[in-house]
């Protein structure tokens, strides 16, 4: 356990200087994810999305959010997960990056939960390879692991050939 403590300590120093993190939690394909609450601009329900031809496949399209054009990203696609069942519309979490807004389409939004930094860990090698690229770390809970999302890497899409 000593090693664990050391790891915890280090990750504590690495991550926010605060002793806890407030995350908006969400689930995609049964897996829990989290985004720091300060990075979340909006939570949206079903939206009218205009598909964009020739866009990378992860881009679901564009939507109008109070006068701003927001690019909708299908996170399931992004994480190479099968699409939602028909009829299930999913929800969206709107985040910002470099002055642009992006709407991340996920399955369900959970609550805003405060996690103690003690629970934070760096990305373990055992983590599902699909999340490894976009994970900034994990939080261990009894219910399971919650993957902390790195928005920048999440939005770093492969360019589809136009």
């Amino acid at each position: 356990m000593t090693q664990q403590e050391v790891i915890n300590q280090e990750s504590n120093e690495e991550s926010n200087k605060e002793s806890s993190a407030e995350l908006v939690t969400m689930s995609i394909g049964g897996q829990m994810f989290g985004i720091p609450v300060l990075q979340v601009h909006d939570i949206l329900g079903r939206q009218k999305i205009t598909p964009i031809p020739l866009a990378p496949s992860e881009v679901a399209g564009a939507l109008n959010l109070r006068g701003r054009i927001v690019t909708a990203i299908d996170v399931r696609r992004r994480l190479n997960m099968p699409p939602l069942e028909d009829g299930d519309e999913g929800m969206s979490v709107v985040v910002g990056l470099d002055n642009e807004l992006y709407s991340l389409i996920i399955d369900k939004v959970g609550e805003v939960i405060t996690f103690s930094s003690d629970l934070f860990e760096r990305v373990p090698s055992t983590l599902d390879p699909r999340w490894r690229e976009v994970a900034a770390g994990i939080y261990r809970q009894e219910e399971g692991t919650l993957v902390l999302l790195n928005i920048e890497r999440l939005l770093n899409l492969s360019q589809a050939a136009a």
Binding site: K48, T50, I52, P53, L54, A55, P56, V59, G61, A62, L63, N64, G67, I69, T71, D98, E100, Y102, L155, L157, Q159, A162
Partner: peptide, 21 residues
């Protein structure tokens, strides 16, 4: 949006009077 800049077909986007993009 930056991820779409590569698509030479489009020079921009807009919101119409009915709110659609």
């Amino acid at each position: 949006a930056p991820i779409l800049r590569e698509i030479s077909l489009f020079s921009g986007n807009t919101i119409l009077g009915d709110g659609s993009v």
